[in-house]
């Protein structure tokens, strides 16, 4: 796929471009600040934008603002935002504006190249990818305030977390070393407990789970 990268750290920008090229993607533009990112995206019309949240000049949330701007002008382009640390607030904000074709990951996740590339593919396909750390945060907060989650078993909570990260049944099965059938069984039990509408569509399932966790 055709990708534009927004990252102000030159070494990381080059490393990321190298990894993506190596994985067979086409890095059509790189930007060191938010304005440049928006310009590159307008010019190259990529399939996906990967950007850091913190960018010059103020080093606050320019990358996020740029991503949301790109989303509004070119909703077709998939967006993955990276950050040195995760906050639930950013996830909620992103998902509220853009429920699909969106990813929010810790920068450190780039290093696990196969997983990172798979995440980009899923976002490109209209999926939602959330960093395990932010999902854990959401889940802990939801469990704190909601008794329904306490009725789930430890394994079911694991499944729920992976669902919230945006993973498919096959991926969850692989992660937990159980059969896909077992994952389906856990999932339907989770739906029942939480009162979620059953869905075969992975993307819709993620959105329902995240909506539930963000209540």
């Amino acid at each position: 796929m055709r990708i534009v990268i927004g990252e102000d750290e030159a070494l990381l920008r080059q490393g990321l471009a190298h990894v993506l090229e190596h994985a067979g993607h086409d890095v059509v533009g790189t930007a060191a600040d938010a304005a440049e990112l928006v310009r590159q995206t307008e010019e190259r019309d990529p399939d996906l934008v990967v950007t850091d949240i913190r960018m010059p000049p103020t080093h606050t949330d320019e990358g996020l603002v740029a991503a949301l701007q790109i989303h509004r002008t070119r909703p077709r382009i998939a967006i993955v935002v990276l950050s040195q640390h995760v906050q639930r607030g950013y996830a909620v904000e992103l998902l509220a504006e853009r429920p699909s074709g969106i990813g929010y990951l810790l920068k450190q996740r780039i290093a696990d190249i196969p997983t990172f590339c798979a995440d980009l593919d899923r976002v490109r396909a209209g999926g939602t990818v959330l960093d395990p750390e932010v999902v854990a945060l959401m889940l802990a907060r939801a469990r704190r305030d909601d008794d329904a989650l306490d009725r789930l078993t430890a394994r079911q909570l694991e499944v729920l977390a992976l669902m919230a990260e945006g993973r498919s049944n096959a991926s969850i099965a692989r992660r937990l070393s159980i059969t896909e059938k077992a994952v389906v069984g856990h999932a339907s039990h989770i739906y029942d407990e939480l009162g979620l509408p059953p869905s075969e569509d992975d993307h819709r399932r993620v959105r329902a789970v995240l909506r539930y966790l963000s209540r």
Binding site: Q84, Q87, R88, R144
Partner: peptide, 24 residues
């Protein structure tokens, strides 16, 4: 905390509260 630098007091406090293990 990055939240304080990037987003200010309200966001940083939200982040603190998010991480609390008891209802807050």
């Amino acid at each position: 905390p990055a939240a304080l630098i990037e987003r200010g007091l309200a966001a940083a406090t939200e982040d603190l509260v998010d991480r609390m293990p008891v209802p807050t």
